[in-house]
Simulated scan of single mutants.
Amino acid sequence: MEFLTQDEAIQVDAALLSSKDKFSTRLAIYALRCLKQISQSEDIIIEDIKPEQVQNWVRNDSSFQENIEFDANFDSFFTQLLMASLNPLKKASEAENIPIQNLTVKQLIHWFEQESKQNLEQD
């Protein structure tokens, strides 16, 4: 599984975001992709995914096996990363008034741009 497609990377790079916010946007896009897979395999909505389900998915996905063998804490780290990504995903889905699994890359980027703009105005 790719972290980001070339098109997604271009869209994020073109966004009016700081480097930190671009990183967060990239992470949210990748997390959404992973959470969609977990959601489908567990037959639940993304909002209901539990850390144990993420950890089991990581342990059972062959693309992660090398990382798990290299670092015994990888599955825990990756689980925390995906679970933390739920917060901005939930906020973006609420702003768009759609379920998380229906968010598009364009909508996520737009949400991060709006958040960044608000943060700048508050400072």
Rank of each mutant, 00 (worst) to 15 (best):
F64V: 00
L82R: 00
T79L: 11
R33T: 10
E47K: 12
I68P: 03
C34L: 06
D43T: 08
S85G: 15
Q55K: 15
D75A: 15
M83T: 03
W57E: 01
C34P: 00
N73E: 15
S39H: 00
Y30N: 14
I45N: 13
C34H: 10
F64E: 04
N87D: 14
A31S: 14
Q37S: 04
F74Q: 05
E42V: 13
A28K: 07
D75Q: 10
L32K: 07
P51K: 07
D48H: 08
E69T: 10
T79Y: 04
L86H: 06
D48I: 01
F64R: 04
I68E: 02
S85K: 06
Y30A: 15
F74N: 03
Q40H: 04
A84W: 12
M83A: 03
L32D: 07
I44R: 05
S76L: 15
I44N: 07
V58R: 01
I38V: 10
S39I: 01
F70W: 08
D43S: 11
R59V: 02
E66I: 06
L82Y: 05
V58W: 02
A28L: 10
Q37F: 01
A84Y: 14
Q80L: 13
D61A: 05
N67P: 02
E52T: 10
F78Q: 10
N60Y: 05
D61R: 06
N87C: 12
I44Q: 09
N56R: 12
A84D: 15
N87T: 13
